[in-house]
Design a protein around this nucleic acid. Structure first.
Lengths: 252, 252
DNA sequence: GTAATAGTGTCTCTAAGACAATATCTG
DNA sequence: CAGATATTGTCTTAGAGACACTATTAC
């Protein structure tokens, strides 16, 4: 009895976004402050309803653009200037996850370079980049009080899943470049890995490895001294999606 | 404006199952024949509606038990006799994926050992194990005719995604043991890898590798000659979930 | 000059892949 | 016996990690 179209329980379907970036050597996520109950005043992940005739991926891309001005882009094409990586993460549908009604949320993961503009449109005081460690551990200014959980609904779980996805995916794919501007140095890419994994990497072995992995980095010919020290070569992301051999996350 | 509970578009939410097993050296998926339009008479993945107060994972476990008699089990516990691995795969919600109404399907992936019983309950002629190659390529007896796609709805896409998930996940996790009976030999485990990846592996290097990976296999002390030749040691799955170092899939 | 970052080279060790040789069963 | 599968061992080589050393900037 696979389908009975005349009698099915109605659900609301939403998308929630885990938008990650690297700012000041820390992995940060986009959080919005809730203006109404439930969880009023609490921080939450951005998101919203999927429209009646809208594809789920399109809804996620629309929410991302509304919150950040970033465009989701097809990874097989070269990245336009204001591009972010966007992929489906997982779906959360516990019957009690929203106290008002049955809501199934299709969470998505977006990876963005550090945004120079403070964000076009929207209230600056109700949308913020917060270090994921603060949002997940519940320490620091984003916590209401010592007893309350830091994020509304099941968003701590969703954020944790998104962070773990990002941490593992930069091992075997070139996704770490999604955190970098269009042109970047090997040192800047290394600082991305260090921030996402929370470890220190050997600059010399890292350099040898990323420049030796075919298709990962393409030199642009330019150099920069924006990190100080000796001028560093600039690179763009190469065509490779999967890294072979992979970057290995150091053991605990 | 994250939520407006009074006005949201209603969706039907279903679970679809990619149930994989290894039979006669081939990776096979469970397929059911549709008894009503649309796609009447066509093969499809098993699935059904999520109930009004049912968790999504519980709905997937219920459908799995209804179709196969298998129990989904927590991977942190030792596997009971009739256990299968079950995990969420991805969510498919194209507005046109079902011609009757807006249906969002949360697909799940299940891995099961080859079932000795032909299946308890249900019509044997409308539920079958079919090689995934046949279901995806559309060649062979499961194809209606040369022009029609082999699987209903977007189920070919879902099946392909599930197969790719299984292929990559047995590289870095101990999930391949989910295709084996509770006690198995190194050779039987190797034939699982060969069937899922569709390659031939060196028996000697495979043996050295799996027995050398800590926590992967635990010897039970027994031996068997069910594969012919010299008696082989029997093993159970060890406690390890992630394999370090991973099993490497041979390159193309 | 010092301090910083960038980049190259060298050494050691783990482990992957190729494959020889031996062990123990069935027919 | 031949033929099947299981298991151990050996050799070669790719690559990860540790780390010395040189290069080029800012101050």
């Amino acid at each position: 009895m696979p389908y009975d179209p005349s009698a099915f329980p109605p659900f609301a379907v939403t998308v929630d976004l885990v938008v990650l970036t690297v700012r000041r050597h820390a992995l940060c996520a986009l959080a919005v402050r809730r203006g109404e109950p439930p969880y009023q005043g609490r921080w939450a992940l951005p998101g919203g309803f999927v429209r009646a005739d809208e594809d789920i991926a399109a809804a996620a891309a629309r929410e991302l653009a509304e919150e950040t001005g970033l465009l989701a882009h097809d990874p097989s094409l070269p990245a336009p200037p204001n591009a972010a990586h966007l992929e489906q993460l997982a779906t959360y549908g516990d019957p009690d996850r929203d106290p008002r009604m049955r809501v199934v949320s299709v969470a998505h993961l977006a990876l963005a370079p550090d945004l120079p503009a403070p964000r076009p449109g929207g209230d600056a005081h109700s949308v913020r980049w917060a270090p994921v460690e603060v949002l997940l551990d519940g320490n620091g200014a984003y916590r209401q009080d010592a007893a309350s959980p830091p994020l509304a609904f099941d968003h701590a779980r969703i954020l944790a899943d998104g962070v773990e996805r990002a941490r593992s995916k930069i091992e075997y794919s070139s996704l770490a470049t999604a955190f970098c501007p269009q042109e970047f140095t090997v040192g800047e890419l290394r600082r991305v890995y260090e921030a996402v994994w929370g470890v220190a990497l050997d600059p010399r072995n890292f350099h040898r490895k990323v420049t030796g992995t075919p298709g990962f980095l393409v030199p642009t010919g330019g150099t920069t001294t924006r990190q100080g020290g000796r001028p560093a070569q600039l690179f763009r992301a190469g065509g490779a999606t999967l890294l072979n051999p992979p970057m290995l996350r150091p053991e605990a």
